[in-house]
Design a protein around this nucleic acid. Structure first.
Lengths: 124, 124
DNA sequence: CGGAATCCCATGTGATACTG
DNA sequence: CAGTATCACATGGGATTCCG
């Protein structure tokens, strides 16, 4: 950890031929999927417990119905979140993490720790 | 690791009051900064070694001059990348990671490993 | 060589209104 | 309750041209 150029985690450089075809950077793809305005927030909330639609809507300050629905649909499509409709009247829909979504929270937490540690060093 | 709701990394839930003010989710902020199309790719390349402007431009397939410059400026502004101008003729500009940028590659590599492990489980 | 300036288009996001 | 539909606007991003 001396700041040299030899301590880059191998996993990052391993599958990067040169020139780097952007399509091959799957890591970047995942960052782009989770890098939108709301996905991360939804994942963390669902990591605590399952939520109903309006629970999420109230919990996430500032999100519109449109974007909450769209975010949940995308996460569901990525196999990170499940959507369960209970056929009651009025209808009740519950969202939860899949095992895959739950496993994602581990590496995410590593990044979260980094952020908490280095937040003051980041410009703005 | 049983898929219950009790194994969420504490760091993620620790500083999340309810309702969650979106401005307080610093983790999401970082994901948004790195979640654009090119930042991750630049960081990984600079993790290998310092690069000149045109080296990056050639290495990253499909990036425009405009976006490469903009991405580098943003990373520089965030204290993740340094920009060094060598007053030669013609001019030579070298980009490299800061210690902060280098330290970021560690949690990023954890996520990269997750991606390599679970890529096939992600929908599309 | 390493950009900056301009133009243009695609996408992300919010506001509002409506619905089974 | 849990959405959908429509509109409007900001931002992301590429192509092209010009410059010290």
């Amino acid at each position: 950890m001396s700041g040299t150029h030899t301590d880059v985690p191998l996993v990052l450089t391993h599958e990067l031929p040169r020139p780097v075809p952007v399509a091959d950077c799957q890591v970047g793809d995942v960052f782009r999927r989770l890098g939108d305005r709301w996905s991360m927030l939804v994942l963390v909330l669902l990591g605590g417990r399952a939520h109903r639609y309006n629970e999420l809507h109230r919990a996430i300050e500032g999100i519109s119905q449109r974007m909450l629905t769209r975010t949940l649909r995308t996460l569901e499509h990525d196999n990170l979140v499940t959507r369960t409709v209970h056929p009651t009247v009025p209808p009740s829909v519950e969202y939860d993490l899949t095992p895959l979504g739950r496993s994602l929270l581990e590496p995410v937490s590593a990044l979260a720790e980094w952020v908490l540690t280095h937040a003051d060093e980041l410009g703005h």
